[in-house]
Measured scan of single mutants.
Amino acid sequence: MSIQHFRVALIPFFAAFCLPVFAHPETLVKVKDAEDQLGARVGYIELDLNSGKILESFRPEERFPMMSTFKVLLCGAVLSRVDAGQEQLGRRIHYSQNDLVEYSPVTEKHLTDGMTVRELCSAAITMSDNTAANLLLTTIGGPKELTAFLHNMGDHVTRLDRWEPELNEAIPNDERDTTMPAAMATTLRKLLTGELLTLASRQQLIDWMEADKVAGPLLRSALPAGWFIADKSGAGERGSRGIIAALGPDGKPSRIVVIYTTGSQATMDERNRQIAEIGASLIKHW
């Protein structure tokens, strides 16, 4: 067993022997301040990774656009098919120029040779490549099948209805392509620590998230040296922004954090800054 596999296998073990965790309302004060600064709703939840206990939450059962955070769930569904012998990570998928959609920095470079399922998941999570996500959605049967996968996990809230990039439209009061912070946090925890996926697939999923290259201005910008984070960000229309993450000190994750916002007129930089400040408060009061 590799060191990384050992780390993920012992996530519940280490967490069980940690000192009790206590909620700190100071972080919620910052979440509410972010709402004021952005002029928009902000949803927040913080779960203990081992027990699933909610440590703090704000608007945990209000719907927010998922945006690209759905790509972690998508690759979880792909990995479940791999575990069941219905898919192979090494299978190569070929596609054409007509398949390319807006923001496809990886797939646009491989029109000639195609990409493997493993490479597509890596591109979808680490670079948020939209064509990679659409190609992977095709392998599982489309958005409705991802929703069905989530329902089978016990998540009857999260739903995907459309493809990239239309799913980022974020129309107010439109339930399409949305989740709730509580539902997303619980589902992410199941994917990373539950028995739904094999140990190898859980490790692969967290490795992809740990290698995320496009979430630097968010929670990662607030992390002290030595902290662990595996995350996936999302951005959408109407001032929408979000991030889902597993993080913790001492090089291992111990909490799940989900943050979503929508309806702001603020710039992307300002949305990023507010999420980073929430992260800084979380870490300060850990």
Score class of each variant (00 low, 15 high):
Glu61Tyr: 14
Gly242Leu: 00
Lys30Asp: 05
Ile54Pro: 13
Pro253Asp: 07
Arg41Trp: 07
Ile125Gly: 01
Ile278Met: 09
Thr193Lys: 15
Gly236Leu: 01
Tyr95Cys: 03
Pro143Asp: 03
Glu277Ile: 13
Ser233Arg: 01
Glu210Tyr: 10
Phe22Asn: 09
Lys213Ala: 15
Leu47Ser: 06
Arg81Cys: 05
Ser104Gln: 02
Val21Phe: 05
Leu247Arg: 00
Val21Tyr: 05
Pro25Val: 12
Leu196Thr: 15
Gly239Ile: 00
Ile171Gly: 12
Cys75Phe: 05
Gly142Trp: 01
Ala245Leu: 03
Ala200Phe: 09
Trp286Gly: 02
Val82Asn: 06
Ser104Gly: 06
Ser80Met: 12
Ala276Asp: 05
Gly90Tyr: 12
Pro224His: 06
Asn272Met: 03
Asn173Met: 15
Phe149Gly: 04
Met209Val: 01
Pro249Lys: 15
Arg91Phe: 05
Thr69Ser: 06
Val214Ser: 07
Phe13Pro: 07
Leu74His: 00
Asp113Tyr: 12
Tyr260Arg: 00
Met115Leu: 13
Thr198Trp: 04
Gly76Trp: 05
Ser128Gly: 02
Glu270Pro: 03
Met184Arg: 00
Asn98Pro: 09
Arg220Phe: 03
Glu102Asn: 10
Gly85Asp: 10
Asp155Asn: 06
Pro253Ala: 13
Thr107Ile: 05
Glu145Leu: 09
Arg41Leu: 09
Asp269Val: 12
Met127Lys: 09
Leu192Gln: 04
Ile93Asn: 03
Gly251Met: 10
Ala123Ser: 10
Arg238Glu: 08
Ile45Phe: 12
Ala215Met: 03
Ser221Asp: 09
Leu247Lys: 05
Lys252Glu: 14
Met180Thr: 14
Ser264Cys: 10
Leu218Arg: 02
Ala225Ile: 14
Glu87Asn: 05
Pro60Ile: 12
Ala9Cys: 12
Asp269Ile: 13
Thr107Ser: 11
Ala230Asn: 01
Glu26Leu: 15
Ala182Lys: 14
Phe58Thr: 09
Lys30Ser: 10
Leu146Glu: 01
Leu19Ile: 15
Gln274Pro: 05
Leu28Lys: 09
Gly76Ser: 12
Ser57Phe: 09
Lys30Leu: 11
Glu195Arg: 11
Asn173Lys: 13
Ala222Cys: 15
Phe14Gly: 07
Ser104Lys: 02
Thr198Leu: 09
Trp208Phe: 07
Leu197Pro: 03
Phe17Trp: 10
Ala246Gln: 05
Ala280Leu: 11
Pro249Glu: 08
Pro143Thr: 07
Leu55Gly: 07
Lys284Gln: 13
Asn272Gln: 05
Thr187Ile: 08
Tyr260Thr: 03
Gly248Leu: 00
Phe6Gln: 09
Ile45Lys: 01
Asp83Tyr: 02
Leu223Thr: 13
Arg118Cys: 13
Pro165Asn: 08
Gly39Cys: 10
Ala230Glu: 01
Pro12Gly: 12
Asp33Lys: 15
Thr186His: 13
Ile243Ala: 04
Val42Ala: 06
Gln204Leu: 15
Glu56Arg: 09
Asp33Ala: 15
Gly154Ala: 07
Arg189Ser: 13
Lys109Pro: 07
Ala225Glu: 14
Ser96Ile: 10
Ser201Glu: 02
Tyr95Ala: 03
Asp250Gly: 13
Met184Trp: 01
Met153Glu: 08
Trp163Ala: 10
Leu160Ala: 11
Asp231Glu: 04
Ser254Leu: 11
Leu282Ala: 08
Gly226Val: 04
Leu73Ser: 08
Ile259Lys: 00
Glu270Thr: 14
Phe14Lys: 02
Leu160Trp: 02
Ala266Asp: 09
Leu111Pro: 07
Arg118His: 15
Gly114Leu: 04
Ala211Asp: 15
Pro253Trp: 07
Ser201Leu: 06
Leu205Asp: 00
Thr198Pro: 07
Thr116Ile: 06
Gly236Thr: 05
Met209Ala: 04
Ser68Asn: 00
Gly236Tyr: 01
Thr138Glu: 15
Asp129Met: 00
Asp212Met: 03
Ser80Gln: 12
Asp161Leu: 03
Tyr260Gly: 00
Asp174Ser: 07
Arg241Thr: 05
Lys144Gly: 15
Pro181Lys: 00
His94Arg: 13
Arg159Ile: 06
His110Ser: 08
Leu111Trp: 09
Leu282Trp: 02
Asp129Lys: 00
Arg241Leu: 03
Ala222Glu: 13
Ala200Cys: 10
Phe6His: 08
Ala245Asp: 00
Leu160Ser: 11
Leu218Cys: 05
Tyr95Ile: 11
Asn272Pro: 01
Tyr103Pro: 07
Pro12Ile: 13
Pro181Cys: 08
Leu120Trp: 00
Val157Arg: 12
Ala40Trp: 06
Glu46Trp: 04
Val29Gln: 14
Glu108Leu: 09
Thr198Asn: 12
Met115Ala: 06
Arg273Asp: 10
Lys109Asn: 12
Asp231Asn: 05
Val257Asn: 01
Ile3Gln: 13
Gln274Tyr: 10
Ala215Phe: 03
Leu167Trp: 01
Leu100Gly: 03
Arg63Val: 07
Thr138Gly: 13
Ile229Tyr: 04
His156Pro: 10
Phe149Pro: 01
Leu79Val: 06
Glu102Gly: 09
Ile125Leu: 12
Val29Tyr: 04
Arg238Pro: 09
Val101Phe: 07
Ala245Gly: 09
Ser201Asn: 12
Ser104Tyr: 03
His5Cys: 09
Asn98Gly: 10
Met184His: 02
Ala200Lys: 13
Leu79Phe: 04
Pro217Asn: 12
Thr158Pro: 00
Asp36Pro: 05
His156Lys: 15
Ala225Gln: 15
Glu108Cys: 07
Met66Glu: 02
Pro253Arg: 08
Asp250Thr: 11
Thr116Ala: 07
Leu55Val: 10
Met209Gln: 02
Asn168Pro: 02
Leu197Thr: 05
Asn50Val: 12
Gly141Ala: 06
Thr138Lys: 15
Arg220Met: 03
Gly251Glu: 11
Asn50Glu: 14
Ser254His: 14
Asp113Gln: 13
Lys144Ser: 15
Glu277Phe: 08
Val257Leu: 09
Ser51Ile: 04
Phe6Trp: 08
Gln203Ile: 11
Glu46Lys: 10
Ile243Ser: 02
Thr186Tyr: 13
Arg176Met: 10
Gly279Met: 04
Tyr103Glu: 03
Leu247Gly: 01
Ser240Ala: 13
Ala84Met: 10
Leu28Ala: 10
Leu218Asp: 03
Leu218Trp: 02
Val106Gln: 12
Arg162Asp: 09
His156Ile: 12
Gly239His: 04
Thr116Val: 06
Thr138Leu: 12
Cys121His: 00
His94Gly: 10
Asp174Thr: 05
Leu219Ala: 03
Phe70Tyr: 05
Ala84Ser: 12
Asn152Arg: 15
Ala84Gln: 14
Ser264Gly: 10
Lys232Val: 00
Leu73Ile: 15
Val21Leu: 07
Gly194Trp: 08
Phe6Cys: 10
Val117Cys: 04
Leu38Arg: 05
Leu167Ile: 13
Ala132Gly: 05
Arg189Cys: 12
Leu19Gly: 14
Ala148Trp: 09
Pro105Trp: 04
Met184Val: 09
Phe228Cys: 07
